[in-house]
Amino acid sequence: MRAFFFSLIVGGVLLAGSMAEAVFVDERLADPAEETRAREISEGIRCLVCQNQSIMDSNADLARDLRGVVRERVAAGDTDDQVRDYLVVRYGDWVLLNPPFKMKTALLWVGPAVIFLLGGLAAIAFLRRRSSAGGGEAVQRLSPEEQEELDRLLRDGKEDDRG
C-alpha cells in the first residue's frame, strides 16, 4: 500500500515536471545548441506584463513574442549580449531580471551591503556598551559594611540551618 502511494507521488512529480517542460515545446529552433542558448537567455529576460516572471515562465502574449524575438536573434547569429542589447534598446535595463551595475543601479546593488554593515556596527556598539556596563558593576567592590553584612548573613544562615 505504501509502495503504491509512493509510486503515485513520484509519478505525479515526474508528470508535473514533464508538463512544465512541455508548455512551450511548440516553439523550438532546429539547432538544439541554439535552442538551449535561446532558452538560457530567455530565462534572464523579464516579462513586462507579469513583472516578476521571466519570459520563459510566462504565458503572456508579449512573452511569447519576445521568446520569438530571442530565438530569431540567436538564429541570426547574435551573441548572448547582442540579443540582450536588442531588447534593452527597446525596453530598457528593466527587461533584464539581473540588472547591470551602473550609477543608476548602484544603490540597488550596494544598498543591502551598506545596510548590513551599518546594522552590524550598531549591533557591535550596542553589545560593547552593554557588556562594559555590566562588567563594571560586577567588578565594583563591596564596601566594608556590605561585606560584613554579607558575611553575617552567610554565617547566620548556616547556623539557622543547623539549628
Partner: peptide, 13 residues
C-alpha cells in the same frame, strides 16, 4: 499584425 513594430517601439500593453 505580428506585433513586431510594437516591440520595436517598446510597447508592452
Amino acid at each position: 499584425l505580428k506585433g513586431r513594430v510594437g516591440i520595436d517601439f517598446g510597447v508592452y500593453g
